[in-house]
């Protein structure tokens, strides 16, 4: 295969027009493409004359129609050697095009001048230095977090969350404490008496209190409403109170002469206090986010 045949793909064995590369090039460059002297125009006229003998005289009206016919024939899907070869070539070309387009999009350094490359190199090394410093900083932070402050801070946060959860009544609590049962056969015990009980337990150091199925928290209310309601939940006698704290202190606080037990007994009820190594306050208080109160922002350290 010679180079000349390769560089002129449209040149077929049967075409007698000698088409050399140079006249075409100079023709294209120097002469307008539509100029009649343009080599391609001459070629086209010759080609059409050759292909349509009846319409001699250089391109009759049926020449485009014939060309369209050939075009349509070529477009028609048909299976022969030529179409298979064309398919393979086209796949190859499409693959090459998309590959090249993507690689061009990825890198364009090759086309740059030397000074641009030097500038880019400078930028890169500066960025590199900056990033190195950042890496060192971040590694130091990471080591700090990993070795020292990290677990301790996390544990402190967990402890704090536990404490707040027990205080707010959102966590079940267990520990030493007492249970107190108030029998009220004559239904004479009122909300005020239960408030006194809770108050007395808190004075004695109770950390978590439950009355019936109600967790007693800072906002818990007791109301008389043909019976006693705590936070809107009706309490049924006998009232059973669980409190976590120092058992001895709380039970003696309940037994103070003239205290809550005496008062209830005077009303016709009876109380019974038991101390336990471990009691469980398992009622939970559901916390609503405050609508108005906002934490005062702490000044950043």
């Amino acid at each position: 295969m010679s180079i000349s045949s390769g560089s002129a793909p449209e040149q077929q064995p049967g075409s007698e027009e000698p088409r050399s590369e140079e006249p075409r090039l100079t023709g294209m460059v120097l002469v307008e493409p539509d100029h009649p002297d343009h080599p391609d125009n001459r070629d086209a006229r010759k080609g059409s004359r050759k292909s349509t003998p009846p319409a001699s005289g250089g391109g009759g009206t049926d020449v485009p129609r014939m060309a369209w016919g050939r075009f349509a024939r070529a477009m028609r899907p048909q299976l022969n050697r030529g179409s298979v070869v064309g398919l393979l070539m086209a796949i190859l070309l499409g693959f090459a095009i998309s590959t090249q387009v993507q690689s061009t999009r990825n890198q364009s350094l090759e086309t740059l001048r030397e000074e641009d490359l030097v500038r880019i190199l400078d930028d890169l090394s500066q960025t590199n230095t900056r990033l190195d410093r950042e890496i060192i900083d971040l590694e130091r932070t990471r080591d700090d977090l990993r070795t020292g402050a990290g677990p301790a801070a996390a544990k402190a946060a967990r402890d704090r969350a536990d404490t707040l959860g027990i205080l707010a009544g959102t966590l079940r609590a267990t520990g030493p404490g007492i249970t107190m049962t108030i029998n009220d056969p004559q239904r004479t015990v009122q909300a005020a008496n239960l408030i006194d009980v809770v108050q007395e337990l808190r004075d004695a150091g109770a950390e978590a209190i439950q009355i019936g199925s109600v967790r007693v928290v800072a906002s818990t209310s007791f109301t008389d409403n043909d019976g006693i309601e705590a936070d809107g939940t009706r309490l049924q006698a006998p009232y059973r109170i669980i409190a976590i704290g120092t058992p001895a202190t709380m039970s003696s606080a309940m037994a103070i002469p003239g205290g809550v037990s005496d008062t209830i007994r005077r009303l016709g009820g009876s109380t019974k206090v038991e101390e336990f190594e471990s009691v469980t306050v398992d009622a939970l208080h559901s916390v609503q986010a405050p609508r108005y109160a906002q934490p005062v922002p702490t000044t950043a350290q």
Binding site: I3, G6, P9, E10, Q11, Q12, S51, G82, V85, M89
Partner: peptide, 29 residues
């Protein structure tokens, strides 16, 4: 290859398309 493709289309319209010549010209191009 694009040049060869357009050459092939032109040869088709000229009615002188030959797949062997096309392949050879494509590859040699």
């Amino acid at each position: 290859a694009l040049d060869a493709i357009f050459g092939g289309i032109r040869a088709t319209l000229d009615g002188i398309f030959n797949d062997k010549v096309f392949v050879v010209s494509f590859i040699s191009n």
